[in-house]
């Protein structure tokens, strides 16, 4: 599904990703962990197509297509979804209008008829229930005045609406209380399917109790320095990152 080869990326001439290699198959859940500044969020931004970052080497193929060649909106329409670490507030754009535009742009891309207002509202109701998002959040402007937890739940709601093939959750757990964390994790698990893959980027093992990964990778200084099964997350939780850093420096 996703094949990343020797990916290098920089911002303002500072190289942050220094040769990432990663392959994700349909249905798999990969966790990417690592200390602050290791390049985790940069990786997710680069995959989503944020133009602030410049890719200077490497390739990414997504379902056989050259991902780096696609505009950000086309990446989304091809089925890539980024749950933002810091969702953006957009006063004046209602959630309904935002989601209807997004969903219908996806449908147009697949050469399907746009949803009518009633079809769309029905879909929205279903998905709201699925991810247990508070009804009145969707009556407001996009993320405006939402609490941290509400913003993250809203990301999962959008994911449910857009039904991506690959979801990247960028520190979706940071700043969440245990209840919000459970809602977010439940949402992700309910959307799980043999065709759908997930990348969970996190600092902490906590979220991985709820979303169980098939693989855990450690990112350090712009490279994946260790990959293993889910037990690696527990080891990291216990021992911290110092031993990895040490191993890597040696």
């Amino acid at each position: 599904m996703l094949v990343i080869k020797d990916l290098h990326a920089k911002i303002d001439d500072k190289e942050i990703l220094r040769g990432i290699n990663l392959e994700i198959k349909p249905g798999e859940v990969h966790a990417i962990m690592g200390p602050n500044g290791s390049g985790k969020s940069t990786l997710s931004s680069v995959l989503a197509g944020n133009e602030k970052f410049e890719v200077n080497e490497g390739s990414v193929s997504f379902n056989g297509k050259d991902l780096l060649d696609l505009a950000p909106e086309d990446r989304a329409r091809e089925g890539l979804f980024l749950s933002f670490q810091y969702p953006v507030e957009i006063p004046g754009v209602s959630m309904v209008n935002f989601m209807r535009t997004a969903v219908n742009e996806h449908r147009k891309y697949r050469e399907e008829e746009p949803y009518s207002a009633s079809e769309f509202l029905k879909l929205m109701r279903e998905k709201k229930k699925l991810v247990e998002i508070d009804s009145n959040l969707t009556n407001r402007s996009v993320n405006e005045g939402f609490s941290g937890g509400e913003k993250k739940k809203n990301e999962i709601f959008q994911m449910a609406m857009l039904e991506p093939k690959l979801a990247i959750l960028d520190e979706t757990d940071s700043g969440l209380d245990i209840d919000a964390l459970r809602v977010v994790a439940n949402g992700v698990n309910k959307l799980k399917s043999p065709e759908r893959s997930t990348i969970v980027i996190t600092h902490y093992q906590r979220l991985l109790d709820h979303i169980v990964p098939d693989y855990v990778h450690v990112l350090y200084k712009g490279r994946i320095v260790k990959s293993a099964g889910k037990e690696l997350a527990l080891e990291l939780e216990e021992k911290g990152y110092d031993w990895i850093k040490k191993e890597f420096e040696d």
Partner: peptide, 27 residues
Amino acid sequence: DDDAMFYLKARGINENEGRILLMFAFA
């Protein structure tokens, strides 16, 4: 706002639609 624009694009909304949404939001 570039960040808002990227957020819209990341949801599959193209530049032109995104501009309209953001201009409308402003007005």
